[in-house]
Every structure is written in C-alpha cells, then in structure tokens.
C-alpha cells in the first residue's frame, strides 16, 4: 500500500515534469514558429473553416444554393430525428439507452421551461425545445474534425435570437397589452429613480438579442479558431508538434463542454425572456 502511494506520487511527479517540459517545448515551438514565420514557413488560416461555399461546384452563393452550411444543418435535422424519433421508436415503458437520452433531453428542457417561465409557458415548450436541440446538435456536429459549424455564424444565431426577441415581445403585448410596458417601470424603486431605470431597462431589453446571439456565435467561433491555430502549430512543428496536439486535445474537451453549455445558456435565457413576456411585473 505504502509503496503504491509513493509510486503514484512518483508517477504524478513525473507527470508534472513531463507537463512542464511540454509547456516549455510549446513555448519554444511557438517562438520558433514565430521566427519561422518570418521566413514564410507557417501558414495558419483559422478562419477558413467558417467559409460558406457551394457544396457542388464553384460559383456565387445564392439564396437557394446548397452549401456546406446547408449540409450541416441537414445533418443537425438528421441528428434530431435519430435521437428523438428513431431513438424513441420502441415506446418502451422501460426505455432503451437512446430512448432514455431522448427522454432526458425532453425532461431537462421541459423542467427548465416550467421552472423558469412557469406552467403557462409550457405551450411554447416545443418551440424552445426546437431551438435547444438545433443548437446542441449543431454544436456537437461542429466538433467533428473537418465539419462546418453552423452555429458559429452570426447570421444563424442572429436569426435564432431575433426570432426569440420578436416572439417574446409580440407575446408580451398580446398577453398583457400595454401592461407589458410595466416591465420597464420598476415599481419597487423610488419614484425619482424610475425614469432613469426605465431608460436602462429599455436599453438592456434591446441589447438582449445582440448578446443572446453573439454569446453563442462568439463562443463557438473562438473555440474552433483556437483549435485551428493549435492544429496549425502542430503541423508546422514536426516532432515538437506533440505539445500543441496535447493542447488541441485539452481545448477540444473544453469545446465539448462549451457546446453543451452554450445550448443550455441560450435555452435558459429564452425561458427567462419568455417569463418576462408572460409575467412582466417585477
């Protein structure tokens, strides 16, 4: 027992040593790469992966052109169908693995809608679940090497966020009429402060779709770009490329986390906005 623990300590000590050596190598490699860059050997294009291009042949991207974005959106639909329809085809009382995954996603988002926005928000659950599943599947599909990440594009996330913004705003006025404006009138604040707060609330309300969309696209894009940069180092460094490869693995793990978390964040914010529309009084 005692020898084992000393062994593992020795091992972790060795692991730390290796880790620091690798970091050192990475720094050296980076410097070497920078030096190398001046000679024109390093060529990293971290943003190339986001280019939208026609899938068949060359030419301009028109509105109905089938592009790589189209392909990966279609694959996201396929993934949703596989999970939610094919996965649940057994309709079993005791679920299979895929069915329990589908039920887990269902229960997760349904509970989120109910807890955050209240029971009267449940009619909008399919809409929110659609957003969640699309973002989740697109994020995860985007992590397949060589794939195209549709949620890294501001055009996509802006539409998602704008749809939420418009829905919530229209819903707020339909359900509450002019009473929806009380969302901006903080009744619990001192009277003198209320106009100032109203201006702040109004600005923050209109900033919502901007932050809502850029949060998602920015996170996904940044992660993918960093992966690409590290991968570029690995390609340029030869044997020393093992250090950036380890970095890529670590960042990839982080990106898996980010993919799920950003889908969650987008969804829960949607729920929060929906709550404001249904119950605008502070």
């Amino acid at each position: 027992m005692a020898t084992e623990s000393t062994n593992s300590q020795a091992k972790s000590g060795a692991g730390k040593m290796i880790f620091f050596v690798l970091i050192g190598l990475a720094v050296l490699a980076f410097i070497a790469a920078l030096l190398d860059d001046y000679e024109g050997g390093l060529s990293i294009h971290p943003m190339d992966q986001f280019i939208v291009s026609p899938l068949f042949g060359d030419g301009p991207v028109g509105m109905f052109t089938i592009t790589n974005a189209t392909l990966w959106m279609a694959l996201a639909v396929l993934a949703v169908v596989l999970l939610m329809v094919v996965g649940t085809r057994g309709r079993a009382v005791i679920p299979s693995r895929s069915q329990s995954m589908a039920e887990l996603a269902y229960g997760f988002v349904r509970n989120m809608v109910e807890d955050v926005a209240g029971k009267d928000a449940l009619p909008y659950f399919p809409y929110i679940f659609t957003l969640f599943l699309y973002i989740l599947c697109a994020n995860f599909l985007g992590l397949i090497p060589g794939s195209f990440t549709t949620t890294s594009h501001i055009a996509v996330t802006a539409i998602l966020a704008a749809a939420v913004f418009l829905t919530v705003t229209i819903l707020g006025f339909v359900k509450n009429g002019a009473g929806f404006l009380s969302l901006f009138w903080v009744a619990s604040a001192p009277l003198a402060l209320r106009p100032i707060l109203a201006v702040i609330e109004l600005i923050s309300y209109f900033v919502r779709p901007v932050s809502h969309s850029i949060r998602l696209a920015g996170n996904v894009m940044a992660g993918h770009a960093v992966l690409k940069v590290f991968a570029g180092f690995a390609g340029a460094l030869g044997l020393a490329g093992i250090a950036p490869i380890i970095g890529v693995v670590a960042i990839y793990g982080l990106e898996v986390l980010v993919s799920a978390i950003q889908a969650y964040v987008f969804t829960i914010l949607t729920c929060v906005y929906l709550k404001d529309a249904l119950h605008p009084h502070h």
Binding site: V52, V61, T67, A69, T70, M73, Y127, T130, Y134, S152
Partner: peptide, 27 residues
C-alpha cells in the same frame, strides 16, 4: 471574418428557417 460576409446571409437564413421548421414539425 466569413461570418461578416453578407453575401452568404440570405442563404444561411433561408436554410436555417427550413431547418428549424423541419425540426419543429418532427418534434
């Protein structure tokens, strides 16, 4: 940034709306 290439926006938006409608109906 390819994200700011407005020439591809209408394409992405079109297919995204189609995608969302497809997912919504399947769900």
């Amino acid at each position: 940034m390819p994200q700011l290439d407005f020439a591809t926006f209408d394409n992405q938006i079109f297919w995204l709306i189609l995608t969302l409608l497809a997912i919504f109906f399947v769900l």
